[in-house]
Simulated assay, not measured.
Amino acid sequence: DVYKRQVFILFALITALLYLFYEDRHRTRAMGGFALLAISGAVAFLLWYTLDRQAHHIQPLIPALQSYWMKIHVPANFIGYGAFALAAMLGVAYLLRVAVEARQPTGLLARVLPPLELLDDVMYKAIALGFAAFTIATILGALWAAEAWGGYWSWDPKETWALIVWLNYAAWLHLRLTKGWRGAPMAWWAVIGLFVTLFAFLGVNMFLSGLHSYGTL
């Protein structure tokens, strides 16, 4: 339906805006192609969903979604999703740069790809921003749940996987800040973390059922 299409558009828009922010801040466009991977993936999924699932038909929102909480909970969530997606794409760029430097340190890709220090720094900042936004979204979601269902937490599959996502990035940041972990292991972690996030975002709706099941994808 139109609501599901809008969330994919919101994801692509927020990811693009986050990239543009970091591009302006660091005065480089070298990360743009990798950010475009995440945006293109969202657009491709949106097109598939629209055409294959007949999502262009307009349907009214169910009562549970007709709330002022939706206007703040959902955008906060998608700032988190967009930041995590951007961090994962920068993780891919980091791993590619490492491989290129090991094989062709003076080749074209080595000259085009952003420096490892920049990729590591922006990846960290994106995850930190995403974690903050996702934390706020989770708190807002709990308040919304208390109003709608009478309880802050019910171990619904969506809630459980949101907690898994939160713990994943909390651990990433903890090890970065307290143990100084960085480099390729953290880049791999950022990439894998995106798959965890994607399952929380899409997989739960496709394969599991619960209070957050507002229709199948």
Rank of each mutant, 00 (worst) to 15 (best):
residue 64 A to V: 13
residue 107 G to W: 08
residue 94 Y to P: 03
residue 133 A to V: 03
residue 144 W to C: 04
residue 135 T to N: 05
residue 113 L to I: 09
residue 89 M to W: 00
residue 129 L to A: 10
residue 93 A to T: 05
residue 108 L to M: 14
residue 76 A to L: 15
residue 64 A to W: 07
residue 102 A to M: 10
residue 102 A to C: 06
residue 123 M to N: 13
residue 90 L to R: 01
residue 87 A to S: 13
residue 59 Q to S: 14
residue 95 L to S: 01
residue 117 E to M: 05
residue 110 A to H: 08
residue 54 Q to N: 15
residue 90 L to C: 00
residue 58 I to G: 04
residue 100 V to M: 07
residue 128 A to W: 09
residue 51 L to W: 12
residue 113 L to H: 06
residue 128 A to C: 06
residue 52 D to G: 10
residue 140 L to N: 10
residue 111 R to D: 12
residue 84 F to W: 04
residue 127 I to Y: 06
residue 95 L to W: 03
residue 95 L to F: 02
residue 88 A to V: 02
residue 105 P to R: 11
residue 48 W to V: 14
residue 89 M to Q: 11
residue 81 Y to M: 06
residue 54 Q to I: 08
residue 44 A to T: 10
residue 62 I to T: 13
residue 69 W to V: 00
residue 145 A to W: 03
residue 46 L to Y: 07
residue 45 F to L: 15
residue 63 P to M: 01
residue 124 Y to T: 10
residue 71 K to E: 11
residue 99 A to H: 02
residue 66 Q to W: 06
residue 93 A to L: 04
residue 144 W to H: 07
residue 94 Y to Q: 09
residue 56 H to D: 15
residue 130 G to E: 10
residue 130 G to C: 08
residue 114 P to Y: 03
residue 51 L to M: 09
residue 125 K to G: 03
residue 65 L to H: 01
residue 108 L to N: 05
residue 93 A to F: 00
residue 109 L to V: 05
residue 122 V to A: 01
residue 141 G to F: 08
residue 140 L to R: 02
residue 137 A to W: 05
residue 58 I to M: 12
residue 59 Q to M: 12
residue 88 A to F: 02
residue 73 H to M: 01
residue 83 A to E: 09
residue 136 I to D: 02
residue 95 L to H: 03
residue 113 L to W: 04
residue 55 A to K: 09
residue 128 A to P: 08
residue 132 A to C: 10
residue 61 L to E: 13
residue 142 A to E: 09
residue 62 I to Q: 14
residue 51 L to Y: 09
residue 82 G to M: 03
residue 46 L to K: 03
residue 97 R to I: 07
residue 84 F to C: 11
residue 84 F to A: 04
residue 44 A to R: 00
residue 138 T to D: 06
residue 103 R to C: 13
residue 47 L to I: 15
residue 104 Q to W: 13
residue 123 M to R: 15
residue 77 N to P: 00
residue 91 G to D: 03
residue 126 A to D: 04
residue 124 Y to F: 14
residue 45 F to N: 09
residue 42 A to W: 06
residue 112 V to E: 11
residue 132 A to F: 12
residue 75 P to R: 05
residue 61 L to V: 05
residue 56 H to E: 14
residue 92 V to R: 00
residue 116 L to N: 08
residue 130 G to F: 02
residue 104 Q to R: 14
residue 79 I to V: 15
residue 64 A to L: 11
residue 120 D to W: 08
residue 117 E to Q: 15
residue 105 P to H: 11
residue 87 A to F: 00
residue 109 L to P: 07
residue 77 N to M: 14
residue 60 P to H: 01
residue 48 W to T: 12
residue 63 P to N: 02
residue 71 K to M: 11
residue 130 G to V: 10
residue 141 G to P: 06
residue 50 T to E: 13
residue 93 A to E: 02
residue 90 L to T: 06
residue 92 V to Q: 01
